[in-house]
């Protein structure tokens, strides 16, 4: 059974069509990267797949059932969502914030269970924030904040994680660590969808890439295919430089074209 399956979905903002006729599915055990230029609808797609926005047409099924057939709380235990630049409205301490990820598992008036504590500790260790847990959200940096929010999403211990640009604010060490973490989740039979701007990370860590461009999925499949020169030129208007290390390809954006492809 597919963890998430979207059939012929479209999204509009008033008169502008963000995308249409999008077919997408996620299996447990795979790490899927969503890439595309600004405004291509990556976050919108992720919000639809997280059941936070209804598609304007088409259907989405979660573990074989439509969203309306799920109790919100049950679905919340299975799908964790990490927003891009998500707000934190009160200066709670880091540990308390991470523990919010356990809310779908909690019964009212009950304290933290052993499972709750174990999940929180695992999430904090995995994101390297254990030493920050007594600080407040005002006393940490933007990158640390992103890791705390990632830990919050991990603490849900869901079978699917949808993460919108989780590595954008991180330093190189923690970028690699975060991608390795997502990789590990996939190896442990979780499904992960991650929106990325870093093409090298996308190429190295993802099983499959989805390139959103031109109001739909412009290309999808293995990273080597999706990150090909033609797709890069068409979707991002860039030329990439490529290299190889330990038998794996990497690429960096090298220069951008002055004119859009249709004018070249």
């Amino acid at each position: 059974m597919k963890a998430i399956e979207a059939v012929q979905i479209s999204a509009r903002f008033s008169s502008r069509t963000v995308f249409h006729s999008v077919e997408f599915s996620l299996q447990r055990g795979e790490l899927v990267g969503v890439i595309g230029p600004n405004g291509a609808g990556k976050s919108t797609l992720l919000r639809i797949l997280a059941n936070l926005r209804q598609p304007d047409s088409g259907q989405v099924q979660f573990f074989g059932r439509a969203a309306r057939d799920w109790k919100p709380r049950d679905l919340a235990r299975r799908i964790a969502y990490l927003a891009q630049d998500g707000p934190v409205h009160w200066p709670m301490n880091v540990g308390a914030l991470v523990s919010l990820g356990r809310l779908p598992h909690r019964r009212f008036f009950s304290g933290e269970s052993n499972a709750d504590r174990a999940a929180i500790e695992r999430a904090q260790a995995a994101t390297d924030i254990t030493t920050l847990r007594h600080r407040t959200m005002r006393e940490i940096s933007a990158g640390e904040r992103m890791r705390v929010l990632l830990a919050r999403a991990l603490a849900v211990d869901a079978s699917v994680l949808l993460a919108d640009e989780p590595v954008a604010a991180l330093d190189p060490q923690h970028q690699l660590a975060a991608m390795e973490l997502l990789r590990t989740l996939a190896r442990h039979d979780r499904g992960v969808i991650v929106v990325l701007h870093d093409l090298s990370l996308a190429s190295r860590f993802c099983d499959r890439l989805v390139l959103l461009y031109d109001a739909g999925i412009y290309a999808q499949g293995r990273p080597n295919h999706v990150l090909g020169d033609e797709f890069m030129a068409a979707a991002f208007n860039i030329e990439v430089a490529r290299g190889e290390r330990d038998g794996r390809q990497f690429l960096v954006p090298w220069q951008h074209y002055r004119a859009r492809p249709e004018d070249r």
């Binding site: 969502y81 934190v88 809310l103 929010l149």
Partner: peptide
């Protein structure tokens, strides 16, 4: 505290 999207994704 985490905003409306995150609150909904936590099942509320």
């Amino acid at each position: 505290t985490l905003g409306e999207d995150a609150a909904r994704s936590l099942g509320f």
